[in-house]
Design a protein around this nucleic acid. Structure first.
Lengths: 195, 195
DNA sequence: TGATAAACGGAACGATGTTCCATATTTGCA
DNA sequence: TGCAAATATGGAACATCGTTCCGTTTATCA
């Protein structure tokens, strides 16, 4: 185990922090359009930094990939709180499931990375589950308690089902995935026990 | 659809045929040890040809990968006939399952290729199933009719189960896979309806 | 503000994919 | 069998990419 996370040592220069953020943002956009094998130079250029800067922060490509994915997981989890404060339990759940679906769909190279055999990605699936499962579980419980959906759905099952649903790529695939997701959401509603 | 397969036009020069074979053989060995991302030059060198020759025969890397895998599937299927002629139904089945397991284990980059998103690999899973399923089904039927194993096992289920079994890589993983495979074979024997 | 450490950028290098064509080999024909 | 046309070959050459390295710039702090 390396202690590279959660150790905010002394002080990191402000520009270094800015650049790290810019790199993650640039990598996110480029990974989404060109996959995780996109040229390093392209990422550095979009972030407005030199490749040297990129390499100091992310010595291996996998560091960048892991960083981007964790960041997007966090953003997706955070969206749940936003939806919860903004909508009722049922709508919050619906909105979040669509948000989660979007997360999956835009991850071109995710499956490829996970199956690449590179041990650097071993921790990713656990991170996904550790963050998404409690989030969805909470949303499901709230909606079920409000009588808006059925109460016998396992969060992890649903996460995996949507993941499988979205495994067919392509532009028309996105349409298909969206329709199937709405079908599932209707299915959740159908079994609701109105109080 | 291109018409590049099954068109045996006029005559292909003998040296061209030899080189194609040498390339597939070299690629097979190198893919097994270094994965499907091994340098093109290395493959050409082991085959004893120049890179130009490699590229004329296999314009894209995926062509080589597909070629190698189909070739190995064919070899594995052919082994079934050999075992059937050489052993009794039960032993033939056992030998073939180990042979199939060996096929899976030595395919380092298989999963990565399949999940790469490259449409060039879309046809591979179907090819696997179309060849392996009838082969195993036949072996299972013969062994079941001879009363050596139980008769309620679906060929595709077993293929997939062994595939999943072997998904844990590594050198000690091979040992583990082998033990688990033998466990499964014993399981097949246990339910046999002795005639 | 000035000294100091930290961070930056991009040139440079090596490895790799891919193309191209002068040369070598095979094949069909007389 | 011997020769010319067709075919295939090999590897140099170019393009691209990952990675390193170091002179220069910038932020921090007293």
């Amino acid at each position: 185990m390396t202690d590279d996370t959660a150790v905010e040592k002394k002080s990191i220069r402000a520009d270094a922090l800015r650049n790290e953020d810019a790199l993650l943002e640039a990598a996110k956009e480029i990974f989404a359009t060109s996959g995780v094998d996109a040229p390093v130079r392209e990422i550095a250029a979009r972030a407005g930094v030199g490749v040297g800067t990129l390499y100091r922060r992310f010595p291996k490509r996998s560091d960048l990939v892991v960083g981007v994915y964790k960041r997007e997981v966090d953003a997706c989890v955070k969206a749940a709180a936003d939806f919860t404060g903004q909508y009722g339990p049922g709508d919050a759940l619906t909105h979040w499931l669509k948000r989660y679906c979007q997360f999956i769909v835009t991850k071109k190279g995710l499956a490829a990375a996970l199956y690449s055999g590179d041990p650097a990605f071993d921790a990713l699936p656990a991170y996904f589950r550790a963050n998404f499962e409690p989030t969805l579980q909470s949303l499901l419980q709230s909606a079920a308690r409000a009588g808006e959906i059925r109460g016998d759905i396992d969060a992890f099952d649903l996460l995996r089902a949507i993941g499988n649903l979205a495994s067919v790529g392509g532009t028309e695939g996105a349409e298909h995935t969206h329709r199937m997701l709405e079908l599932m959401i209707d299915g959740l509603r159908f079994g609701a026990a109105k109080p």
